[in-house]
């Protein structure tokens, strides 16, 4: 009888909580080593220490970004980074979608530059350099003043004009009623 109950419990365990014991547990330290380009969340999690300054960003931009995005972010051969109007309207052509008029979260800028820029040399910028570039690009788009420091605390607080246009797809809302946009 006891044996039968034990077998039953074992089977139940397999059906409900079963694990296959495949994969190797790793420490948070090892995870941090593996996490080469951490995701930056809209609340600022994932942002490293450091601070960005507009004038430093201008120098780095000229050296590492301008050849693709234009001397002042006007674009060509690749995407525009600065464009009117702020924010976009339904009549704005997608070629004019840029950071200041279309991106809805300032944290995305840090995440993306550290993750994927410069194109073809991703991962070569230091955390500090990324902060400088973020500060310069926010300044060029008229989002911050020249002397506003950009860091872990301030960046998630920066409001982007296009955020007010952003809504959740109604079908997504219907399927995931708990889901809200940050």
């Amino acid at each position: 009888m006891v044996k039968r109950v034990l077998v039953l419990l074992a089977l139940l365990g397999l059906a409900v909580g079963a694990r296959y014991n495949l994969g190797t547990p790793i420490s948070e330290e090892l995870v941090a080593q593996y996490d080469l380009r951490p995701a930056v969340l809209p609340d600022g999690r994932g942002l490293p220490p450091g601070e960005g300054k507009v004038e430093e960003g201008e120098r780095i931009y000229a050296e590492k970004c301008a050849s693709c995005h234009g001397a002042r972010g006007e674009g060509y051969p690749f995407n525009r980074l600065v464009a009117e109007p702020f924010p976009i309207t339904k009549d704005t052509e997608p070629a004019e979608f840029a950071i200041g008029n279309y991106w809805q979260y300032a944290t995305t800028l840090y995440d993306y530059i550290r993750r994927a820029m410069p194109f073809g040399a991703a991962g070569t910028l230091t955390n500090e350099e990324v902060y400088h570039l973020v500060a310069f690009l926010l300044y060029m788009n008229g989002i911050i003043d020249a002397h506003e420091p950009i860091n872990q605390k301030t960046l998630p607080q920066v409001k982007m004009p296009a955020r007010e246009l952003l809504e959740l797809d109604p079908e997504t809302k219907r399927r995931f009623p708990w889901l809200t946009l940050p």
Binding site: V40, Y102, Y105, D111, Y112, L181
Partner: peptide, 10 residues
């Protein structure tokens, strides 16, 4: 939280 990554925002 969602990341609001570049390819789900811009």
């Amino acid at each position: 939280l969602p990341a609001m990554a570049k390819d789900e925002t811009s």
